[in-house]
Design a protein around this nucleic acid. Structure first.
Length: 120
DNA sequence: AACATGACGTATT
DNA sequence: TAATACGCCATGT
């Protein structure tokens, strides 16, 4: 079979790992793009995470809304459709979002504490 | 190869 | 906390 080796895989090797990490984020908790990248063994590739999420098959039903910027803010343009959808999905899980920024939750599991440490 | 762009991050002021 | 600047990585011109 004539398999073309010149072209890289349509789906980057790293995407599945990124998806797995995102899928593992428990409801009510959130993670930064950079953190997701690190957990997927892809340090310093936060931007790749956003790309992977954008390319993720809807079939996977990933909790993409649980991924925020390192400062706790939604990465989409304020007021945009995606921005509001994400805020709504988070609120739905009990995560308070004020002015596009996630506020500290009432109680966070100790294991996820680190993820809630946006310097403040 | 230079330059621009982006669902980003960190340091500095 | 906010605004700026610069760094990083991948992709497309």
């Amino acid at each position: 079979m004539a398999v073309s080796k010149t072209s890289a895989a349509a789906v980057p090797e790293a995407y599945p790992r990124i998806w797995a990490v995102v899928a593992a984020i428990p409801a009510g908790s959130v993670l930064g793009y950079g953190e997701v990248a690190r957990r997927a063994g892809l340090a310093r590739r936060a931007r790749l995470v956003s790309k992977a999420l954008n390319a993720a098959p809807a079939k996977l039903k990933l909790p993409w809304h649980r991924v925020l910027r390192s400062d706790g803010r939604i990465a989409f343009p304020a007021g945009s459709e995606s921005f509001r959808r994400q805020a709504r999905l988070l609120e739905r899980e009990g995560v308070s979002v004020v002015n596009g920024r996630v506020r500290a939750p009432r109680d966070v599991a100790v294991a996820d504490l680190d993820d809630w440490l946006w310097r403040r």
